Simulated assay, not measured.
Amino acid sequence: MSGSSEPTSLTAEDLAAQGITALPDKEVASILDLNADLDLNLDVAAPIDLAVAANANVAAPIDAAVGANILSTGSSAQALADQGVLIDQNITADATAVSTQDSTIDQAEAGGTDPADAPATGTLPADDGGLGVEGVPLPGDVSDDLGSALSGDLLDVDIDLAADADVAAPINGAVAVNANVAAPIDAAVAANIASVDSDAVSIAQQDAIITQNIDGEATATADQQSDLQQ
């Protein structure tokens, strides 16, 4: 036994009886409404004063000898490095560094923006009534709540940010140096690689006499006076 029924369409009265809700037009609802107002006022001051004084003697004699036999037979590699160094370094001087800094920084303003006057706010869409869709009536409370939620923006944010910053970093420095540097280097290298009956001889001899004298004073003076008005 089998039976069949033909589908029937719904009338406007049937839709109203089922409580079906018609959505508003697409253009009346937006996802995000953002209004941001940024007011930044920055004052930056960084005066820098540096004094450097140096007395230096530098000596670096270098002597090197290299001998090599690679994949050779019956060869001899000899390296001889002989270095004689006599270094006499004398400094008779005063290294004086004087740095004087007098900073007057006025970052005060006659009038500023008080961030408390413009707090960041977030508002929800106002309730402006029902959907106003003709032809499909809704229950009273449901129509009011649903209409206010869909007729405006889903997220409405209004941000007003005001920032006023004063930054001051006066820097003062003084450096004084007296230095003697001596670095004699002597090297000799001899090598036989994969060779038979070969002689590798390396002789390195170094005689170094170094005399370093410093007669003087290294003085660094830094004087800083800063008048900051923020």
Results as ranks from 00 to 15, higher is better:
residue 44 V to E: 01
residue 44 V to D: 07
residue 45 A to I: 04
residue 45 A to H: 04
residue 45 A to W: 01
residue 48 I to F: 03
residue 49 D to C: 05
residue 50 L to W: 02
residue 51 A to G: 03
residue 54 A to P: 03
residue 56 A to W: 00
residue 57 N to H: 02
residue 57 N to M: 01
residue 58 V to I: 12
residue 59 A to H: 05
residue 65 A to I: 00
residue 66 V to R: 00
residue 66 V to K: 02
residue 67 G to H: 02
residue 68 A to G: 05
residue 71 L to G: 08
residue 72 S to E: 11
residue 72 S to D: 13
residue 72 S to L: 07
residue 73 T to Q: 14
residue 73 T to H: 07
residue 75 S to P: 00
residue 77 A to F: 02
residue 77 A to Y: 02
residue 80 L to D: 15
residue 81 A to R: 02
residue 82 D to Y: 13
residue 82 D to H: 08
residue 82 D to R: 06
residue 82 D to M: 09
residue 82 D to L: 11
residue 84 G to F: 13
residue 84 G to H: 11
residue 85 V to M: 12
residue 91 I to N: 06
residue 92 T to K: 06
residue 94 D to H: 08
residue 97 A to S: 14
residue 97 A to C: 07
residue 98 V to N: 15
residue 99 S to L: 03
residue 99 S to N: 13
residue 100 T to A: 12
residue 101 Q to R: 11
residue 101 Q to V: 04
residue 102 D to R: 10
residue 103 S to M: 10
residue 104 T to Y: 14
residue 106 D to A: 07
residue 106 D to I: 10
residue 107 Q to F: 02
residue 109 E to K: 09
residue 112 G to D: 05
residue 112 G to S: 12
residue 113 T to W: 04
residue 113 T to M: 10
residue 115 P to D: 11
residue 116 A to I: 04
residue 116 A to H: 08
residue 117 D to F: 08
residue 121 T to Q: 14
residue 121 T to W: 00
residue 124 L to I: 07
